[in-house]
């Protein structure tokens, strides 16, 4: 089975957030870039599914020239092919991104190399739109399962496990299908030296966007004003224990 997994280059959110001067984007220059935790798990799932079924996992990104770094990383983590739609992502809203992914899927299908499954993260760590995967499914006329932790493929059916509000849900969708992934079902592997060397040799399919983007409807980004610290230090080390238990009693949690 051939699996396409979609990733997005995003600023690393383990550090402080700064905005660009025009307040249109998060300035990642000083913090470094990564992909969302959900997408790390989607890449792992794609690699495992392709391995188990004798197929190929292809990683796709829509992003600037630098996003090739995220593609090479995924190639080092078990993906065998990569597609780069080079574009200024700030001009692309979630509907635009879904349409571009659909264009790649349809073209590969037309060329006789269709994807049985498309995996995406449930939501991107930066824009948090919660909709690209679902819009993609509609653009392709395929079923979609949202928020899966684990996916299995057998007999032309994708079986996905979702943590629902009432318990563990098992979903079934006929292939070809779209599944969006949440972190926590699989442990992403660490890249090996051999994997990194092999990743460097893969020829990345370079593309331009197929459509003029409609845009994100973003007016501007804002940072919530930093609230002045009002922390009350109860003490240092073990000596603070009585003050802590006093606080528990005051809050009525003991």
């Amino acid at each position: 089975m051939d699996v396409l997994v979609c990733v997005k280059r995003v600023p690393d959110s383990s550090s402080q957030i700064l905005l660009t001067e025009d307040a249109q984007a998060v300035d990642g220059r000083h913090v470094g870039f990564t992909v969302s935790p959900h997408e790390e798990c989607a890449v792992e799932l794609a690699a495992r599914l392709a391995d188990a079924t004798g197929g190929t996992a292809t990683v796709l990104t829509l992003g600037p020239a630098e996003a090739v770094e995220q593609l090479r990383n995924a190639l080092a983590l078990g993906c065998g092919a990569a597609v780069h739609v080079e574009a200024d992502t700030s001009r692309f809203g979630p509907a635009d991104v879904a349409r571009e992914i659909a264009a790649v899927v349809r073209e590969h299908e037309g060329a006789g190399s269709p994807y049985d499954l498309v995996l995406l993260g449930n939501d991107a760590a930066d824009s948090g739109d919660f909709q690209v995967g679902i819009r993609l499914a509609y653009a392709l006329g395929r079923p979609v399962v949202n928020g899966a932790k684990v996916v299995e493929l057998a007999d032309g059916v994708a079986t996905a496990h979702v943590d629902g509000p009432a318990g563990a849900e098992t979903w079934s969708a006929p292939l070809p299908a779209v599944v969006t992934v949440l972190e926590g079902g699989v442990e992403p592997r660490y890249p090996t030296i051999k994997g990194r060397m092999a990743a460097r040799k893969v020829q990345i399919e370079q593309r331009r966007p197929a459509y003029e983007p409609g845009g994100s409807r973003r007016t501007r980004l804002l940072l919530p004003p930093p609230e002045p610290s009002t922390v009350q230090v109860l003490g240092k080390g073990a000596e603070a224990a009585p003050a802590v238990v006093d606080l528990f009693e005051k809050l009525g949690v003991r």
Binding site: S13, I17, S127, G128, R218, T219, R220, L222, L223, P224
Partner: peptide, 17 residues
């Protein structure tokens, strides 16, 4: 115009609907 959480709530986005 709505204001919504992005980057896990570390930043806000104003968006026209």
């Amino acid at each position: 115009v709505v204001t919504r959480q992005v980057v896990g709530g570390a930043a806000l986005e104003e968006m026209r609907l």
